[in-house]
Simulated assay, not measured.
Amino acid sequence: MNPLEISKLFRVSGRFSEAHPFGNGHINDTFRIRNEVPGSPDYVLQRINTHVFPEPEKLMENMSGVISHIKHQKRYAHLVPELIETESGAFFVKTESGFWRMYRFVEGAKSFDRAENEQQVWEGGFANGSFLKALESFPIEKLYTVIPDFHNMVTRIRQFEEALETTSKERKEWAFDEIISIQKKKATWIKMFQSAVTGNIPVRVTHNDTKFNNVLLSEHSKKSCVIDLDTVMPGYTFFDIGDGLRSAVISANENESDLSLVVVNEHFYQSYIDGFIDGSDGLLTSEEKQLIPKSGGYMAFIMAVRFLTDFLKGDIYYKTHYAEHNLGRAKNQLYVSALFEGIS
């Protein structure tokens, strides 16, 4: 079945004329479903990558529970997209072509890969901070851990070292400089992770994938929408703050190979932090705030480790567009991590 046919399995209104690829995510396949009927909404259809998310039913239980919890709070109802039910009342459908879900398209909002001004950066931080605040009372024990140890530096370094043992001689030679860089810095970031999680940092319901383009910025202040909720699960706030920083305040994204174009905008840096703290509305403890200066460096480094691990394993996780794409991403994120260390 093609996307237009699959769309008819959901409780939708209108008549559809086209489905075209939408967004630039690394993991799932996303389509915008155009509606021909005036006044009827467009929709977003997604095929979940079951290699990355092998238990999509549990993932959707997480997502539907979190969305329902937030939608029942008038103050935050705008903050998450609307899931569309199937004719049977479920929030997903399984066909021979994959595991699918659908959202109502969010009108009047737009995703940006790069922030254009300080207000946009503040709005992105505010949305992600608000997301944490909106889930403050969510029963965390009900959440399925979608990807165990997702941002656990100890685990990610172990996976990197295992990949290093089994990779081809050619790939090891290509990645020689990046391998050495990770080996030199791994102890620093492992120490930070272990100190944080064995201290007084609370476990919270976190998004865990707060790239800047995972916020749909609204035309109206404080009304943005947080998307890509696949990885919502128990975590630590420095994961969300750091991932937002590494994507919102850097002049170029992780695909940029010319590192002379990769710089930190320090005005954006402070604006994002201010927005996040404002959005979290008193939620963060003093210990959580103390980790903010190191959070961007931590998340950029763990992404470098993940990209390089995937490269060493033959590019099996992230979508790539050329042979050394993941290697280039790793080089980029190692550079970004060092930039953040320079201002922390």
Rank of each mutant, 00 (worst) to 15 (best):
N2W: 07
N2R: 08
P3W: 04
L4S: 07
K8G: 13
G14P: 00
E18I: 12
N24E: 13
G25E: 07
G25V: 06
I27G: 11
N28K: 01
D29A: 07
F31R: 01
R34E: 14
V37H: 03
P38A: 14
G39T: 07
S40F: 09
S40E: 15
P41C: 11
L45H: 01
L45D: 06
R47W: 06
I48Y: 10
I48S: 12
V52Q: 11
P54A: 08
E55H: 01
N62R: 00
N62S: 03
M63V: 14
V66I: 08
I67M: 02
H69A: 05
K71T: 02
Q73T: 02
K74W: 08
L83P: 10
S88D: 14
A90N: 00
A90I: 01
F92G: 02
K94D: 10
R104P: 07
K110T: 15
A115R: 04
Q119A: 00
E123R: 05
F126E: 03
N128L: 06
L132A: 10
L135A: 04
S137K: 04
S137Y: 05
F138T: 02
E141S: 04
K142W: 03
L143A: 00
Y144Q: 10
V146I: 12
D149K: 15
D149P: 02
I157K: 13
R158F: 15
E161A: 06
A163W: 01
L164D: 03
S168C: 06
E170R: 13
K172L: 14
K172Q: 15
K184E: 13
K186P: 15
T198S: 15
G199I: 08
N200S: 15
V205G: 04
T206A: 08
H207Q: 12
N208I: 07
N208W: 06
D209E: 02
N213P: 09
N213W: 09
V215G: 07
L216H: 11
L217E: 06
S218K: 04
S221C: 03
C225D: 10
M233K: 01
P234L: 08
F239V: 07
D243Q: 06
G244T: 05
L259Q: 11
N265F: 15
E266M: 03
S271T: 14
S271Y: 04
S271R: 04
Y272A: 10
Y272V: 13
I273R: 00
I277T: 05
D281T: 09
T285F: 11
T285N: 12
P293T: 15
S295M: 12
S295P: 02
G296K: 05
G296Q: 15
A300F: 13
A300R: 00
F301G: 10
F301E: 12
I302P: 01
M303D: 09
K313D: 13
I316Y: 02
I316L: 09
Y317L: 00
Y322D: 09
E324V: 00
E324T: 13
L327G: 09
A330Y: 03
Q333S: 01
E341W: 09
E341R: 12
